[in-house]
Amino acid sequence: MIYKSTVLKAFKDKDTGRHYGIGGFFSSEDAERVAYLGDLGFVDKEVKEIKPEPVVETKKKETADKPPFKHVGGGWYELANGERVKGKQKALEAIESR
């Protein structure tokens, strides 16, 4: 659970070294830390509890989606083996002939 509160006085957090300005938000997983800063008057005593969103892993694109050559400018293409050819059609033909 993450606890979030509005900053009332500017301060530097001793644990993280991060500076917080008036009107910003202070958030922490430690409810006691937020309550302590509230007692000192640095943050608002009204604390909001935020449930962290679950982490969703994204699949990496297949390498088959990428062409096996790279455009290097001026109509030139570099093949996977380091060879350079002029023209996209010639690059495709060079790959198919392997």
Rank of each mutant, 00 (worst) to 15 (best):
D39V: 12
K9S: 07
G87V: 11
T6N: 11
S27Y: 09
K61G: 06
K86D: 00
T16Q: 05
V72Q: 14
P68G: 06
K61Y: 07
K9D: 08
Y36N: 14
A80L: 09
D13Q: 04
A64L: 03
S28R: 05
G82T: 05
K60A: 13
K14I: 03
L8H: 07
P52Y: 05
T16N: 02
K88V: 08
I95Y: 02
D44V: 02
L40Q: 15
I50G: 06
G73V: 12
G21D: 15
R18L: 13
E93I: 12
Y20E: 04
K61H: 07
F26C: 00
L92E: 14
Y36S: 14
V43P: 03
D30H: 14
G87R: 08
G87K: 08
V56C: 07
F69P: 01
E93T: 07
L79I: 04
A10K: 15
E78I: 00
K51I: 15
A94T: 02
G38F: 11
I22Q: 07
V55M: 10
A64P: 01
I22M: 07
A94D: 00
G74A: 14
L92H: 11
Q89C: 10
S28T: 13
E96D: 04
A10P: 02
K70H: 14
K66D: 13
T6K: 11
F11N: 01
E93P: 02
R84P: 03
E93Y: 00
H19R: 11
L92M: 10
H71W: 00
S97T: 08
P68A: 10
L79W: 05
W76A: 06
K48I: 12
L79F: 04
P54R: 10
E96H: 06
S28L: 03
Y3K: 11
Y3V: 05
L8A: 04
L79D: 00
A94E: 01
A31C: 03
F11S: 00
Y36P: 01
G87L: 04
P67E: 11
S5P: 03
I22D: 04
I95L: 08
Y3C: 05
L40C: 08
W76N: 11
V72K: 15
E78G: 01
G24T: 13
R98L: 09
G82W: 01
Y77V: 01
K48D: 14
M1R: 12
D13M: 02
K48W: 07
D30P: 13
V7F: 10
D39T: 14
G73E: 14
E57W: 03
T16G: 01
V85Q: 01
T16I: 10
G38M: 09
G21N: 09
G38C: 05
P67S: 06
E46V: 14
